[in-house]
């Protein structure tokens, strides 16, 4: 069982994702923007995976900044980005460490596979 922080500006997608992830036996936390997410990351709450949208309403590439700050606080955190936009090489250059990225619309199976990859790489 892992703890997943889902950061998604669309509340409906956020909830659907949480339900999907909970079905696999994981625990979820959620935030709709960078500030909310940072508040959770600053708390003593254990977190294994940060699953964040790159394009957040309040910040065009807020997901990158969030992941950068999150890794400073928690160097062993797994990071999985998602986006509906093209992932260019310039964007890839902003990925932290061994982070992965999953394009929208992703199926539950694609999401599960990405989680498994990340958890295996960090175990």
């Amino acid at each position: 069982m892992a703890v997943v922080l889902v950061v998604e500006d669309d509340a409906f997608i956020c909830e659907l994702t949480e339900m999907t992830v909970q079905d696999w036996g994981h625990q979820t936390l959620s935030a709709n923007d960078v500030d909310e997410a940072l508040e959770i990351l600053r708390s003593p709450q254990h977190i294994d995976i940060l699953f964040t949208d790159i394009y957040l309403k309040t910040a065009v590439v807020g997901g990158f900044e969030l992941a950068r700050q999150a890794i400073k606080m928690r160097p062993h955190l797994c990071v999985l980005y998602t986006t509906g936009n093209f992932v260019t090489n310039d964007m890839r250059a902003l990925f932290i460490g061994d982070a992965e990225c999953i394009r929208k619309p992703y199926t539950p199976r694609q999401l599960q596979t990405s989680f498994e990859h990340l958890l295996a790489a960090h175990s």
Binding site: L16, Y55, T83, G84, F86, K104, Y106
Partner: peptide, 18 residues
């Protein structure tokens, strides 16, 4: 626009998953 459309498609995919 891409962000909005993909979010909508994501919702459809999520609903189908359920």
């Amino acid at each position: 626009i891409s962000h909005r459309i993909k979010n909508n498609l994501q919702i459809v995919v999520g609903l189908i998953a359920f």
